[in-house]
Every structure is written in C-alpha cells, then in structure tokens.
Write a protein that binds this DNA or RNA. Structure first.
Lengths: 341, 341
DNA sequence: AAATGTTACGCAAACGTTTTCGTGTTTATA
DNA sequence: TATAAACACGAAAACGTTTGCGTAACATTT
C-alpha cells in the first residue's frame, strides 16, 4: 500500500510549517490567500484526508461504538445491529461488531480489545456461558470506571447500567391468552434452559396467563430444550406421545417451526388439533405451512434504543440515572392459531 | 467516564520517566528488578492497558478490517460476516461493519470514513445503486494507492483487486439440470434486474443448462423481479396464468418461497404440477411446505476466503497477482423437487 | 590506577493532527 | 516619525506509546 499523504508531506513540498498547512486546509484567515490556494489545490489533487487515528488520539474520542453479541447469524441479532447502525450513523458514529460465540472467554477477550480506547462505548448482549457461570468481573471493571455501557436482550440485573429489553413477560402473556381464547386447554411451553433470562421471563408470562385464566399449571407441559443437542429429536418427543398438548408456545421461531413440522408429520391438523405460536424475529414463521402466529420482537427498535441510550451516555457530562427501556411486542396472528372454520 | 490510566500517570507516581515505565511493563532487563516490581504491581492494581489508538498510530497498523455490505438483515450476508469475523479473529484482527443500504452515496461515505486510517483493509459487496449507475470512482482511488481491498459476491469486473464469488453459473446449471432430470419441460427463471451481477450469472447457468439439454430458450419464461415493488404481486402473476410453468428456478430464497406459496394457493401440487428450486442462504427453505430444494451458497466459507485474501494482502510485502476465488455451491434436494411417488 | 564493563535509567524522536502563543514584517494611524 | 495594528507564519505542546541511544554511577578486570 502506498503511504498516505500527510500534513508533513505537504509542508515539505511548499517549504512551510505543518501548522501552516493545517490552518490553510481549514481556511484559516491567518494564512494568506495565496498560500492557502496553493496548499488546498495540492491537497485536493493528492486526495489528502486527515488521518483519523491521529484525530481520535488528539480528541480523545473515536466515534466508534463497540457491539458484542453472541452470534450474528441470527435474524434477531442482525435486526438489532441494523437498528444500532442506523442510529449510530445518524449521530456520526461507526460500529464495530464482535462475536462472543456464546463463549465467556471470547466475550472477555472482546471486552479487553474494545475497551482499550478503540471505542467510546459498548453495547452488549451477554453470552450464554457468561449467564450460565454468572461471572461478571469484566463488567464490574467497566462499571467502576463509568465506561459507557448498554446491555440489551440478554441482560444482567446486577450490573448497574442502561438496559433495553423486550417485554418478554408481556409477549408470552399475550400469546398464551390468545391460545386460551381460541380454546386451548393443555398449552405446552417449549423453552430454553433456566439460565437464559429471556427463556425464564417468557415462562413467567406464560404462567401468569395460565393463572389469570384459572388454568392449572402442569409442570409436565413445560419443556426445556438443550440447544447443544438435537432439536428435532427433543421437540419430536413432545409431539409424539399418546396425548399431545393442544397448543404450544415456543420461545423462538425454530422451536415453533420444528414443532409444527413434527405435528404435521404425526398427522395432526393445525390449528384444530394443535395450535402453535412462536416468538419470532425472522422470516421462517411467514413461510411455514400454515404460517405461524408469532410474537414479534422489533429488533430494529431495540437496536436504535440501545444506541440512543449509549450515545446519550457518551455525550452527557453529568451522571444520569440508568434507564431500563422495555420494547413492547406485537402478536402477529397467522393461520397456525386461526382456524379456517 | 473516568480518564484511563496512562504511562505518564504511573511515571509521575514513582518519579521516573515514561520510558522506564514502558520498559518495566515489558519486563525489560534494562530496569531493575525492584523498580519493575513496583511498577508492575501498581499498573496491575489500576488495571493499566496500553491505549490502542496510540499503538495503532505508532505502528501504523490498526488490525481492523472494514466490511461494507448492502444490508445486514439478510441471512447470506450475516453468514459472510460470521466467516470474516472468525478468520479475522484467528489472525488477531477486529471487524468494523458498515452498511450501504444499497445506496451509492452511503457506500461512498463509508469508503471515506473507513479509508482514513481506521482500517488496514476493506471487504466490500457492492451496493445495488452502485452497480446500477456503474460509478466506481471511490474504488479507483483505493486501487491507485494499492489499498488492500477484496470484493465478494457483488463484484465489479473492471476493478483490479482480489475477489470471491459464488459459482453462480454452476449452481444455476446444476439446479436447472436437476429440474430437467425430474421431467420438467417449461422451466421458468425468476431473477433480478440485469445489473445485479449474481442475477445475470445465474441466468447464464440456467440458459447453459437448457441448451446443453437441447431445450429451447423461451424468453417469456424469464421473469425479472423489481425488488422495490410488491413481490407477491409480481410473482403471483407468473403462477396465476392459464398455463403456468412446470418448474421454477428462483435466484433467491424469498422468490422461491413466494412462488411456492402462490402455487399452493392456486391449488397446484408440488412438485408434481410445479417443481421449485431457490438459491438459498437462510432457513426458510427448510421450513416451507414442502421444503424447498435449494442451491446452497456457503456464505461462511466465502467470508473466510475474503478475510484470508485480505489479510494476506495486508501482510504481504511484494505485489502479488490478484486472485479470483470461486466458492462452489451445493444442491440440497428437498421435497419441492422430489416427488413422493 | 587506569581501563573496561555493567547497571539502571532518561532523552528524544516518531506516528499525524490541532491549536495556542509567540514573532518578525509590513501597513496604517496619530 | 514613532506607535500601533494587521498580517502571515512558525514553534511547541498535547494525545499515549515504543525504542534506539546516551550517560551517570558503580563494579570489575588487568
């Protein structure tokens, strides 16, 4: 790569000082019209652009936001990034994305790299392993230094910072209510392991709805999927019993789609024999047969919110109280809960 | 935010020079065991970490890779980013993601920001608008300076740099052949506007397969979708005619899924009345009913390749010839082309 | 006793920029 | 004609780091 042209180069070219060049390029009245013209023409011709590293160092500001997420090949997270990027860009920030791959170690290493001055603030969704082990040292270090930090979706209550979450309880509540309304009696919940906060929150909403409808809680209808094992097998077992549930609430799109597939394979009719709702963020629900009723998560909005909180934090002088923003969900009703009759 | 601790702080604390501190922290033998110990303990206690901006400026290296893609809420692109991130990380690089949103202007502005010293190299998939207008000034500027650049998927032939592409021709060829093999006579192609390179390459493979099978080319079976208009309407028109095609090759998953939906709505049986194949990168194809046979694109691999080419370019001294790597596709056969009979 | 070697540190340049504060020269004012 | 502005520029510090070189003070060798 050719070395980039610098102020020093230009200065040498005209036998003037670096500061003269700098001022000339900034149209300072301190520099004569003549000198200014020459320098600007030259700089323009050689496509001079100030080295942003130097500027960042001098201004003690990078205008970069770091984002650490568990994975990127996941529709929900990409919509969030999209939202972050949109808002950040409007405000003149760039986005640096790092993946933890659900690993604690990787998350910590991302923290170390990003908080060494490369970014002005951090937006994080916690890795599964971190949630599992509950080791938050890397967060504590940031908090102690008042480093701008926003957690989203997979948050940690103990950490004192701005947070953005989906209204998981409300979403599951609405969905479960809907299932009750269409006549379901034995509503199964397909969820994640307990340490995944969103999983347990959705379970909470599910339980709340059952209670408020006077339906008894049947623990045997709550299935906790292990994401590291075969999904089709685990979910198949829920459907392939003598007396399967008459409705299913799945905490994500994949679980719901697999349950749908398994139900059809067993010859059950949907929604008449079994109604299915999934939390969603992707396009699958729309294209299954029948299409899946789903709890919509508005990842874009979540990303925008997170970015807004972070940038406010970065640019604010005084200490403000930390906020916890809740993004409400929508229930998109499709054929998997809508009897044609 | 609390100001971060620097070498200068530590130096002042112990009344030594900055260089002494720097050397002590690097375990230099030039510094006495005693001084070294004190300094390291202090630095450790206050969690000193060298400011990476300063290092980047000094070393003239950021260890950051810039990635510019048209959109991120797109399964294919997220898999590519995933691949890039994986490989980059293995090599000690970080990834900065920018979105062009298919806009020429945004792409240019991303170029400007990223090439001002923030990144060591750039991986780009060209925005639709740029392909449409064929204005490549921003690329030319980079090429002239030998700035490390890799194009992927949506590439520009005229630009002299490393490139990674999907074997679009081969993929479409294989898919079309498969359709012929299962007995299709009137194979429609649902593709994009011509200026989208991948679209026209896939069309090329489609045509090649027809020719090699001695099937006449019927231009009226080639449908060019306008992404800015209603997809369901445009694709519906293809199916809802007296004599619809008996097979469809769609250049992406969404087109294929919509065609499938429209066919079912019309009461056509799949694959017996109409067989469907889509290029894919997402999960939709797996969960439609029936599941869609698809041309798999291996975005992860593509990302890894792009990152590898770029990092080699960044780290290589002498000028090497530019490479064009072709990632081959797979044909995943599912029920949409597999008659149950 | 002189020469040499070792130890333990500091100085200063370099990366590229901005900006404050001089300062020498010219021009305008009293 | 002396004095004050106005003009046009340069020096240097600052952001935080690394590193080659210089050098005192002390230790060892011949």
């Amino acid at each position: 790569m050719k070395p980039r042209i610098t102020l020093k180069n230009i200065a040498k070219e005209f036998g003037v000082s670096i500061s003269t060049v700098s001022k000339a390029l900034k149209d300072s009245h301190e520099i004569s019209e003549e000198t200014r013209g020459k320098i600007k023409a030259f700089a323009d011709y050689y496509n001079y652009k100030p080295n942003s590293l130097a500027l960042q160092l001098r201004n003690q500001k990078t205008s970069v936001i770091g984002v650490i997420i568990p994975e990127i090949v996941h529709h929900f997270f990409s919509t969030v990034i999209n939202g972050i990027e949109q808002y950040a860009n409007e405000k003149g920030y760039n986005v640096m994305v790092c993946l933890s791959n659900e690993s604690y170690e990787k998350e910590v290493s991302n923290f170390t790299v990003l908080t060494n001055g490369s970014v002005d603030g951090l937006i994080v969704s916690v890795a599964r392993e971190t949630q599992e082990n509950q080791i938050y040292k890397h967060f504590d270090a940031l908090i102690k230094d008042d480093f701008p930090l926003v957690l989203f979706d997979r948050i940690i209550d103990e950490i004192d910072c701005d947070k953005v979450i989906i209204d998981d309880i409300g979403g599951a509540f609405k969905a479960t209510n809907h299932l009750v309304e269409i006549g379901a009696k034995r509503i199964a919940l397909i969820t994640t392991q307990d340490y995944i906060t969103v999983g347990s929150l959705r379970k909470e909403g599910y339980l709340k709805a059952l209670v408020s409808n006077g339906i008894g809680i049947d623990e045997s209808l709550i299935y906790k999927i292990d994401d590291t094992k075969d999904l089709h097998e685990q979910i198949g077992k829920i459907i392939n019993v003598k007396n399967p549930p008459d409705a299913i609430l799945a905490v994500n799109e994949i679980y719901a789609a697999i349950a749908l597939k398994a139900s059809k394979a067993k010859g059950l009719s949907i929604p008449d024999d079994i109604a299915i709702i999934g939390f969603t963020s992707g396009l699958i629900s729309e294209f299954t047969y029948p299409p899946l009723t789903s709890v919509e998560q508005h990842g874009d909005l979540m990303g925008r919110q997170a970015a807004e909180l972070l940038i406010n934090r970065i640019e604010s002088k005084g200490p403000n109280d930390f906020q916890k923003v809740v993004i409400s969900t929508g229930l998109k009703i499709r054929k998997s809960t809508l009897s044609v009759n």
